[in-house]
């Protein structure tokens, strides 16, 4: 029963991917090759620190979905549990911010 829904997901994915790839592969007229310089140039990696903080928060989000579903049934204890969790993460953001990790330039 659970898998039944995903049959549609699989079929839609298969169908769309096939059509789009066919559009790319089959409808191929001769192309004009446009010459442009290679893209290799230096990039700053301010993104890396953002990405690390993001990873921590994204993992937290995964825990929040099951929590959200059962929250209303459990009530106050669930709220307190999540507040502790959020407070710890809030401290994490504040620390990263203070240390300049949220600075791009």
């Amino acid at each position: 029963m659970v898998l039944h829904g995903f049959v549609v997901v699989g079929l839609v994915g298969l169908f769309v991917a096939s059509v789009a790839l066919l559009a790319a592969a089959a409808i191929r007229r001769p192309r004009v090759r446009v010459h442009a310089p290679d893209a290799w140039k230096s990039y700053r990696f301010g993104l890396a620190t953002f990405a690390l903080i993001f990873l921590a928060f994204d993992m937290e989000m995964i825990f929040m979905y099951p929590w959200a579903v059962v929250y209303a049934r459990i009530g106050v204890p669930a709220l307190l549990d999540m507040l502790v969790f959020i407070a710890l993460l809030g401290v994490g953001v504040a620390y990263a911010w203070r240390m300049g990790a949220l600075r791009w330039e």
Binding site: G13, V16, A17, A20, L21, A24, A25, R29, P30, R31, V32, R33, V34, H35, A36, D38
Partner: peptide, 21 residues
Amino acid sequence: ERAPAQTDPWFYSAAPAIALF
């Protein structure tokens, strides 16, 4: 019908399909 000359053919062709997917 135009494309850059130095593409990675697999990444380049797969991208629009993956977006629509």
